[in-house]
Amino acid sequence: MATRPENICPPEIYYNQDEAVKYTNSTRIIEIQEQLTERCIELLNIPEDEEQLILDIGCGSGLSGAQLSEHNHHWVGIDISRDMLNVAAERESEGDLYEIDMGQGFNFRHGVFDSAISVSALQWLCVASKKSYNPVARLKKFFQSLYNCLRAGGKAVLQFYPDGAQQLEMITTAAMKCGFGGGVIVDYPNSAKAKKLYLVIQAGGDTREQNIVMMNGLEDENEEEAKFNAAQKQKQIHKAKKPKIKSKEWIQNKKERQRAQGREVRPDSKYTGRKRSGPSKYLK
């Protein structure tokens, strides 16, 4: 498995100029970010024609913000990486940008935001990339700040990549402790690569009317999913081509390999790999 960037170095160092440039030039990254943001907005379930004030947590180079602007929402973006924010400023993002470490909490006035989204940022909080960091305390601080700045009943959709069940539990527990209601939606649960998790939470308000639970994760075989399946099939075909263990072909292959290594190998004959006519025949 590929190494996770959280385990390499802190985000403000990882997302340096080089990495920020990737986020403007790589069409693949842009496409994925746009899809994720689109899905986050869908999960927010904002009534049509309503223009909201939205907090974008970990806005990076403003890719997610651009989607929000397209839906005519006002947004405020926060991120810890100065280089990514500079790119966002260059792209003339419509939202306001702030350099904020979400683990330190953010002090927007209480109840000002209608919703919040976050694309691929939350997992950074689970890692102690500095000695002074305590992931549990930072998560708590983050969810408290988020709860405070959302209006009553305001929703937040946070897409993230947890490293295992433990991190997932850490995040959901922290959110629930701070008073949020809601749950996790999993898109494409059967695919290792296309699988995406969304924490959909609501700050107070009327929790009886939780349309969150009613929403299902996507399971349709969309293009991406199909691609992964195709790759898996290819693998199976490749596997099937291998000769059966201890078969004549398998033995010959093995001898060939050992000869290539320069070992002493008995020459092939008509008896090589021939089925034994053992006593089993008579025992039956």
Partner: peptide, 14 residues
């Protein structure tokens, strides 16, 4: 700077 306020705190201010 560059239109972006730096709101990051020192460790003792958190």
């Amino acid at each position: 700077k560059n239109g972006i306020p730096n709101m990051i705190l020192n460790d003792e201010e958190v």
